[in-house]
Each structure stands twice: as C-alpha cells, then as structure tokens.
C-alpha cells in the first residue's frame, strides 16, 4: 500500500536506535491497521503493535533476511494477534478446515449491480458499519489473507511467508475471502438499491 524506504540491516542488527526509530515510523501504521482489522479492538491492536516492535528490537539480530523486513514484521504481528485471539477463543486457528475444500464450488448468489451507487452512499456511516461487520464475520484464516494481500499489498508469496501458507493456499483463501465479502456487501447494497428504486 505504501512505498517503504530501504533499511540498513547492519545498523538494525547492531541496535542502532535512529535506524530502528525509522523502521518504527515506516511500519507502525500498517501494523496497527492490520492488528485493528484482525482484532476489531483498539486496545488489543495497540498491545499487538507494541509487542511486535519490542520483539522486533529484541530479535533483529537473529533476522536472517530470507524474507523482507516487512514480511517478518507482519508475521510477528499476526502471530501476536492470533495468540491474543486464542486467549479469548481457543478454537481460533489459521489451519485449514474441512469447509476449505468447498471453496472452489462457491457460487455467487447476490447479483445486484450496486457499483453505480454514488461513492458517498458506498462509504457513508451505515455502509462503513456493514463493511466492518462483513470482514469481522470472515473466518480468521480468510480475513488474515485478505488483509495482507488486499489491504497491506503484500505479494502472494510474501503473504504465504508471513502466514506460513503455501502460495496455492493463499490464492484459494484470497478468492474465497473476496467472494464472501462481495456476497455480504451485495446483499446489503442490493437492498439499499431496491429501497432507492422504490422512492
């Protein structure tokens, strides 16, 4: 989503505070946004943000550079967010479920053409509540992929690295997440469209 300046791994590994502050400035918004969308709670998102950078500072010396710094930070943040979620609900997992096999047969049912609604309607307070509700209703294994790929702009490969998934699994889950969100928004905006047309 944003261009990130290059960082000196040498300085970071040596514990250079100025370089680390630069890293924090560059990634703090993205990590906070990811945590907020994963958890839906500002306090939890702040906790994840702080733990992510504390751990990053402690473990940068062990960072081997096999993935990009951003992917590594996203991985730490996602793991922390998942741990927090599991404390509240032990069943939360990124693992496949039986229902994953049904993904390719997912059929769109809501076929209202709401794309022509004015942008002001698509992004008003009520619509934003629906957007939030729809993403929160996604299983975490789909939500995490959608957030990494479509919101934070990670590649399929980096998303897989950050979440410990194969590229094929990322692609399958991304398609499913997009289609499920589309379905939920289409139900809502389709109804709004029908109400508009009645006027």
């Amino acid at each position: 989503m944003e261009t990130v300046a290059e960082f000196s791994l040498e300085l970071l590994r040596a514990g250079d505070r100025v370089e680390f502050a630069r890293l924090v400035e560059s990634f703090s918004v993205s990590i906070y946004r990811l945590a907020l969308q994963m958890l839906g709670n500002q306090q939890d998102a702040e906790d994840v943000l702080q733990i992510t950078f504390v751990k990053a500072f402690q473990h940068l010396g062990e960072f081997e550079g096999r993935s990009s710094l951003s992917t590594w930070l996203y991985r730490v943040a996602t793991n922390e967010a998942l741990m927090l979620m599991r404390r509240k609900d032990a069943s939360v997992s990124l693992d496949e479920e039986k229902s994953d096999d049904e993904g390719d047969s997912f059929q769109p049912h809501e076929l209202a053409d709401w794309t022509k609604l004015p942008e002001g309607d698509l992004l008003d307070v009520e619509a934003r509540t629906q957007l939030e509700k729809a993403i929160r209703s996604l299983p975490v294994r789909l939500r995490a992929v959608f957030l990494m790929r479509d919101i934070e702009g990670l590649s399929i490969r980096d998303t897989g690295e950050a979440l410990g998934l194969t590229e094929t699994a990322v692609k399958t889950r991304l398609l499913r997440a997009r289609l499920q969100l589309r379905e939920k928004l289409s139900a809502y905006f389709g109804e709004r469209l029908r109400q508009e047309n009645k006027k």
Binding site: M1, Q37, L123, D150, R182
Partner: peptide
C-alpha cells in the same frame, strides 16, 4: 465489477 468494487471500498477505508 462488484468484487473489484468490494476490494476498492476496503482499501479506501483502510487508507
């Protein structure tokens, strides 16, 4: 169209 619009809306709000 609705899928691309869905992604666009989430990206706009996230931005």
């Amino acid at each position: 169209d609705t899928t691309t619009r869905t992604i666009y809306l989430y990206q706009t709000v996230a931005n």
